Amino acid sequence: MLKKIGLLLAGGLSVLVLMFHLGPLVGLAISLAILYYAVKKFFKADSTFGKIVWALIGLAALMVSVSNVPALIAIVAAYVLYVVYKKWNEPKEVVQVVDDPFVHFEKQWAELQKHY
């Protein structure tokens, strides 16, 4: 029960942090997409002017990406939320006490039959 309360608190805190840093996270995603597109266009450009323009666009997108450092906090919060979800749905351990000496008899008998 105490574990569930801890997971609930960690999950709630992660949701709040993720919501507060949603803006920088979207900005990071958009700037990385622009950077990716600019790099692709830079390598495909034939003229020097085209390469310079795409390099400047890529540099601007890189600076915007670096300025969205709070988005890293949102990524960490999303990961914590994922871990909380996985732990929440983890099956409980069932301890089974077996007093019957013949529980594994069939398996051991089959193994012995293989050797002889």
Rank of each mutant, 00 (worst) to 15 (best):
Leu72Glu: 09
Trp88Glu: 02
Val83Ile: 10
Tyr85Asp: 11
Ala77Thr: 05
Ala77Cys: 06
Val98Gly: 04
Asp100Leu: 04
Val76Leu: 06
Trp88Ser: 13
Asp99Trp: 15
Leu81Gly: 08
Ala78Met: 09
Val98Thr: 11
Val98Tyr: 01
Val94Tyr: 03
Leu81Phe: 07
Asp99Ile: 10
Val84Cys: 05
Val84His: 00
Gln96Phe: 14
Ala71Glu: 00
Val95Glu: 05
Asp99Leu: 14
Val76His: 03
Ala77Asp: 05
Ile75Gln: 06
Glu90Pro: 15
Val98Asp: 06
Ile75Gly: 07
Phe102Gln: 13
Lys87Gly: 10
Tyr82Gly: 11
Val95Tyr: 05
Asp100Asn: 15
Pro91Leu: 03
Pro91Val: 01
Val94Glu: 06
Pro70Tyr: 01
Lys92Ala: 11
Ala78Cys: 09
Val94Trp: 01
Val80Gly: 04
Tyr82Glu: 14
Ala77Trp: 01
Asp100Arg: 12
Glu93Asp: 14
Ala71Leu: 07
Glu90Gly: 14
Glu93Pro: 12
Phe102Val: 15
Val84Trp: 00
Val83Lys: 11
Lys87Val: 02
Ile73Asn: 06
Pro91His: 02
Val84Ile: 07
Val94Ala: 05
Val83Gln: 09
Ile75Asn: 06
Lys86Ser: 06
Asn89Thr: 07
Tyr79Phe: 14
Tyr82Ile: 12
Ala74Ile: 05
Tyr79Cys: 09
Pro101Leu: 10
Val98Ala: 04
Asn89Ile: 09
Lys87Pro: 14
Ala77Ser: 08
Val95Asn: 02
Glu90Lys: 12
Val94His: 01
Ala78Phe: 06
Val84Asn: 01
Val76Asn: 10
Pro101His: 10
Tyr79Asp: 08
Trp88Met: 08
Leu81Gln: 06
Glu90Ile: 13
Ala71Asp: 00
Trp88Gln: 08
Pro101Val: 03
Pro101Met: 11
Ala77Arg: 04
Val84Asp: 00
Val83Leu: 12
Val80Asn: 03
Ile75Val: 11
Ile73Pro: 00
Leu72Phe: 11
Val80Cys: 09
